[in-house]
């Protein structure tokens, strides 16, 4: 069931040279879905997120949360929609406890409602012992984790996460990803997720929207996008019969390169089995094999530099 519907959303920044940052995008976010928002710099990701949290007014188009018009029911809707980003902070001279107290009250919750949940989240992210520390005393990684506590402490239905793992060490970033997946499973939270870490997006997102020049360039599952962008690659260590192996590849119209004892090929995933079978028929001996699947990063690189149609 769609709980966020975006229809024909436009944003044009006026000025001497008007700039069309978002040009008619439409998409839905379903309950419990994690939707990735990807694209190169200037693609319109941040502009879209800002419009979705009402800190930027769209030039045209509609945003509906839970079937209600965001423009008309902003305050009521934001009661269930939160946001976290590496690029915003909290008042430096206030402690973690004071900041979360203020934030909870802005959602009309009393400290009784959110206090216990806050402590659990602070403990989960390893910053409970810093509860009475000022924000100015925290590292950037600790502030990023605090922003996540802030986003999840009020029990939201939708969370907008703008690069939530930037500035985090890999082990903590992994923990954050696990937490996001748990929230989706247990609480059915829907998440709109942006990141520059493609491996992370592949792991966490159910679906990916790729924006380019303010338009939706692709909308698909991460694995399908990867396949659309590149072929699989195979690297074989040939013990005996390099010439025969090259001939097999040539017969099957595959692009192959011999590099000392290593044979490198690009091919579709479906061709791998028949190629290996043909090598066996030609009595080629190989001592090692590595199959490299295309990744979302391949798609990103291709799409970022491609023409308007993939």
């Amino acid at each position: 069931m769609s709980i966020l519907s975006v229809r024909d959303l436009h944003k044009t920044y006026l000025g001497k040279k008007p700039f069309k940052a978002v040009q008619g995008i439409s998409f839905d976010l379903n309950e419990g879905e994690i939707l990735g928002l990807l694209g190169p710099n200037g693609a319109g990701k941040t502009t879209t997120i800002q419009m979705l949290m009402s800190t930027l007014t769209p030039t045209k188009g509609d945003i509906f949360y839970f079937g209600k018009d965001f423009l008309k029911h902003r305050s009521e809707i934001l009661q269930y929609v939160t946001f976290a980003s590496t690029y915003v902070s909290l008042p430096w001279s206030l402690t973690i406890e004071q900041n979360l107290d203020v934030y909870g009250r802005l959602f009309c919750q009393s400290p009784k409602d959110f206090g216990k949940r806050c402590d659990l989240l602070l403990e989960r992210f390893g910053i409970l012992s810093k509860k009475r520390s000022r924000i100015s005393e925290l590292s950037s990684g600790q502030i990023t984790r605090l922003m996540l506590v802030k986003a999840f402490m009020i029990g939201p239905k939708i969370v907008l996460l703008d690069e939530p793992t930037a500035s985090l060490d890999p082990d903590i970033a992994h923990d954050v990803i696990q937490f996001i997946l748990e929230q989706r499973e247990k609480e059915k939270v829907s998440i709109l997720f942006t990141s520059h870490n493609m491996a992370e997006v592949s792991e966490v997102c159910d679906r990916v929207l790729f924006l380019r020049k303010g338009k939706i360039y692709a909308d698909d599952l991460p694995q399908n996008l990867a396949k659309r962008a590149a072929q699989s690659r195979i690297e074989l260590i040939i013990a005996e019969g390099m010439e025969k192996a090259l001939n097999v590849a040539k017969k099957l119209n595959m692009e192959a390169i011999a590099d000392h004892r290593c044979l490198k090929l690009k091919l579709d995933e479906a061709q791998i089995a028949s190629f290996l079978s043909s090598l066996a028929d030609a009595k080629v001996n190989y001592s090692g094999i590595e199959i490299i699947q295309p990744t979302l990063e391949d798609f990103f690189l291709k799409a970022a530099g491609a023409s308007d149609e993939l």
Partner: peptide, 18 residues
């Protein structure tokens, strides 16, 4: 200005606060 300096302005106005 406090909200600008501490990058808290967006935080405040992305909540239900009117």
């Amino acid at each position: 200005l406090q909200e600008f300096w501490t990058r808290n302005f967006v935080n405040l106005f992305s909540t239900p606060l009117k």
